[in-house]
Simulated assay, not measured.
Amino acid sequence: MIRLIIRERHKRVESGSNRTDVYARHGMPCNRCGATILREKFMNRSSHYCPVCQRKR
Score class of each variant (00 low, 15 high):
residue 1 M to P: 10
residue 9 R to C: 12
residue 51 P to S: 09
residue 36 T to G: 00
residue 32 R to E: 01
residue 43 M to N: 13
residue 27 G to W: 03
residue 46 S to M: 02
residue 5 I to C: 10
residue 4 L to V: 11
residue 47 S to I: 09
residue 53 C to I: 07
residue 38 L to E: 07
residue 53 C to R: 08
residue 49 Y to T: 07
residue 50 C to A: 09
residue 22 V to E: 00
residue 9 R to K: 13
residue 37 I to K: 04
residue 41 K to A: 12
residue 16 G to H: 11
residue 49 Y to A: 11
residue 34 G to Y: 09
residue 23 Y to T: 10
residue 28 M to H: 07
residue 21 D to G: 05
residue 28 M to W: 01
residue 42 F to M: 12
residue 5 I to F: 03
residue 9 R to G: 07
residue 30 C to G: 11
residue 26 H to T: 09
residue 14 E to W: 05
residue 49 Y to Q: 00
residue 50 C to I: 03
residue 13 V to T: 06
residue 11 K to G: 11
residue 11 K to F: 04
residue 13 V to A: 06
residue 23 Y to C: 01
residue 31 N to C: 05
residue 43 M to G: 03
residue 7 R to M: 06
residue 35 A to Q: 14
residue 25 R to L: 02
residue 27 G to K: 08
residue 13 V to E: 05
residue 33 C to P: 11
residue 52 V to R: 05
residue 44 N to F: 08
residue 43 M to I: 01
residue 40 E to D: 06
residue 5 I to L: 13
residue 24 A to M: 10
residue 7 R to L: 09
residue 46 S to F: 10
residue 48 H to S: 06
residue 44 N to Y: 12
residue 46 S to D: 12
residue 51 P to G: 13
residue 48 H to T: 07
residue 8 E to A: 13
residue 55 R to D: 00
residue 35 A to M: 03
residue 30 C to Y: 02
residue 17 S to Y: 03
residue 34 G to A: 05
residue 55 R to L: 10
residue 35 A to I: 03
residue 52 V to Y: 12
residue 52 V to T: 08
residue 40 E to L: 12
residue 44 N to H: 15
residue 23 Y to V: 13
residue 33 C to H: 14
residue 18 N to K: 11
residue 35 A to V: 00
residue 41 K to N: 14
